[in-house]
Design a protein around this nucleic acid. Structure first.
Lengths: 225, 225
DNA sequence: ACCTGAACACCGTTCAAGT
DNA sequence: ACCTGAACACCGTTCAAGT
């Protein structure tokens, strides 16, 4: 492996070995492959074959790296806008599905992304047009559109949090609901116990896709009231 | 300050200076007061006037401390169950409000709590009875009850994530929506731009309480369809 | 301006030794 | 079993020095 110029000193113009973008892309690869805890400034520098301190010329600190990653994930997000060729509720659902899928593309980053107010605020501005357009077509008033969009986003965020948190964890960490309920003291939660038993093991095998669709349908019905 | 026995060696029975519970309570105080990053094993030991390594006799590692904190927060959670004296939708809303308030009690811990699958799974079992009872009274089938409860929980989680993330941050981090939208290129997001402009600065002053209520109403209407 | 090396003030955790 | 002290293998970041 040729060691192309890890001498110190300022590189000539156009020969910079780093850039904010290159650093963030390398960071994203680490996080995607090994999780958020694997991302350290030193590790990041090593994969870029650079001194750890060099990073600080492009990003002020580690928090900025994480914020930049949230930005990257949302920048990749492109909600489809089928225009008015489909009913408003399908338009809304499609946009919601695309948003969920965008978050799933980098599950190890979801927590970071969803808890970064600046990133979330920005994504609302950049990608929410299909949401607003669909809700407008549904005939809602401006205030209702605003609140409906927020409610839908909150649902997707909460859903994605659950969906991405479970991934990669051992199943011991998400113990079987049926067994847990049956271990409850008698009559501690009678309705829950009855419902869970009626559903049985098969009915409780949670499927994320159908859970998401169920939530979407409920919300659309609620908006349409 | 008297230094009561920081000699080494095993304490006599009943004179143990530590316990899992005491450690977790001390950790909770640190996190509540100074945020999750302030919690280190060394810092935690210092506030307990104990050697850092002593903690490891009660909790296997730092991850176990964080998991224990999530457990604590949810253990405090007590959803009111007014029984059948109120309509089912009020019963459901009240339980949802109580759940939200439980998460707000420790905002610095919300992220940790919501992303801990074991803790979330456990809270569902222990506190969701009012949700299930209300939805049962609404006349939903078991499968619908299960999915409705999940949808409601996801909404509350997503909402709480937004609510607690913004807290304590400088407002620069959640830039003004109106200004952001107006900075967009012409016709990038026409509907969004129109709606936001119609609402104006006052209409956009987001109020978490009314946002939560709006989401609850939408969901209840959707469940009742 | 951009990269480097040494250094500072921390981390979580292992291990051997005390009682 | 429970607590301690020293040590290991890390962190993020500051600072002075190179070009």
């Amino acid at each position: 492996m040729v060691n192309v110029g890890n001498r110190s000193g300022r590189p000539r113009a156009g020969e910079e070995r780093l850039s904010r973008e290159a650093i963030l892309l390398a960071a994203l690869r680490i996080v995607d492959a090994e999780g958020i805890d694997a991302l350290t400034m030193r590790r990041l520098a090593a994969t870029l074959k650079v001194n750890p301190m060099s990073l600080y010329h492009h990003l002020p600190n580690k928090a900025a790296v994480l914020a930049g990653l949230a930005e990257l994930v949302f920048a990749e997000l492109e909600l489809p806008d089928p225009g008015d060729s489909v009913p408003w509720d399908e338009q809304l659902k499609d946009a919601a599905r695309a948003y969920r899928n965008g978050l799933r593309a980098h599950p190890n980053l979801a927590l970071q992304v969803l808890s970064d107010p600046a990133a979330v605020s920005n994504v609302v501005v950049v990608t929410m047009e299909p949401f607003y357009r669909a809700l407008d077509r549904a005939g809602l008033a401006p205030r209702q559109i605003f609140e409906a969009a927020n409610t839908l986003i909150d649902f997707i965020h909460g859903f994605s949090l659950g969906e991405t948190s479970v991934r990669g964890e051992t199943f011991e960490l998400a113990p079987d609901l049926l067994a847990q309920v049956r271990a409850l003291p008698e009559d501690k939660a009678p309705t829950l116990t009855r419902i869970v038993n009626e559903l049985g093991p098969d009915g409780l095998a949670y499927d994320f896709d159908s859970g998401f669709e169920s939530g979407l349908s409920t919300l659309v019905a609620g908006f349409a009231r």
